[in-house]
Amino acid sequence: MFSTVRQHYQLISAIALVIGVALITVAEMPSMHWTRVFGATAISLGALGLGIYVGLTQPGRYAAARARLASIKQQIGIVMLVVLFLPALLGLGAGIAGLFNSPGGTGWVIATGALILALMLAATVAAFVIGVQALTGHSPVEGDDAA
């Protein structure tokens, strides 16, 4: 039985994925919410199965696609950074803006909030800059190999 499973590993994984997507979709219907966990599990197992199968048996598969991705990884990375950072930066920035028209809370709580928002905003901006530097190859490289 196990050898049969191994032979059809890829097919089984694909089926698990399809079933998983179906169950997740069904879960959004009224009173069918209970199917979500099974859908998520099926999707995870299917993805795991496919990843492991290709990794163990066909490492060269999708090599062209991976090479294509690798060739534009810097651009992908920067776009991704912008997209991922923007909402947080806007949220934190909105909080700072809200300080000037704050409706409630005791003074020290507001002050604490302002401090946290400012620190987080500063850290996030710095992290964004560091991320861009890292992706564009301008990150600091200390140590013996730096020269």
Partner: peptide, 15 residues
Amino acid sequence: ILLVLPVAFLAFGVA
């Protein structure tokens, strides 16, 4: 549904 992508990437790398 998009969970499939990171999990497959992770599984491939670990494998």
